[in-house]
């Protein structure tokens, strides 16, 4: 579950991929037909329709492909970074470091450099970077 490890299975379903590629091929055919029709006199309307179909198909299949890729990225489990805050009970000295195994809140740790009293772990927390939140009117 470390940051580097990736899931053992990264395959997108082949079924889905096949459908996407068929749609992509068909839409490209439609675009070619549209170009063909455009140069045939009296077929301008048909060309327009075909172009519409083609563009829609390409847009849809690339969108789905993009979505699947995004889902694959989410498969990794992120390891959050945990912060430990250490405070001196006498002076206002405060230090922040990465969490180490064995830390717990209200644990006495190494003495303060100035006062020679044992310092205290006062907080252990994880900071979450909020992804740009969608704003709802609620």
């Amino acid at each position: 579950m470390s940051k580097a490890s990736s899931p053992t299975t990264t395959k997108i379903s082949s079924f889905m991929l096949m459908i996407i590629f068929i749609v992509l091929a068909l839409s490209l055919t439609a675009i070619i037909l549209a170009i063909n029709a455009w140069y045939t006199p009296g077929q301008e309307l048909t060309a327009g329709y075909l172009l519409l179909i083609g563009v829609l198909g390409v847009a849809m299949s690339t969108y789905i492909l993009f979505q699947t890729k995004k889902r694959m990225l989410r498969l990794k489990i992120e390891a959050p970074s945990i912060t430990t805050t250490i405070e001196c009970r006498k002076c206002d000295f405060k230090s922040i470091r990465e969490f180490q195994r064995g830390d717990y809140i209200f644990k006495e740790v190494e003495p303060c450099q100035k006062c020679n009293v044992n310092m205290l772990i006062t907080a252990i927390y994880r900071e979450v970077k909020e992804r740009k939140r969608e704003r709802f009117p609620f």
Binding site: P80, Y125, R126, V128
Partner: peptide, 9 residues
């Protein structure tokens, strides 16, 4: 159930 968030602290 995950490590305590700053907001909760």
């Amino acid at each position: 159930v995950s490590p305590m968030r700053k907001e909760i602290l």
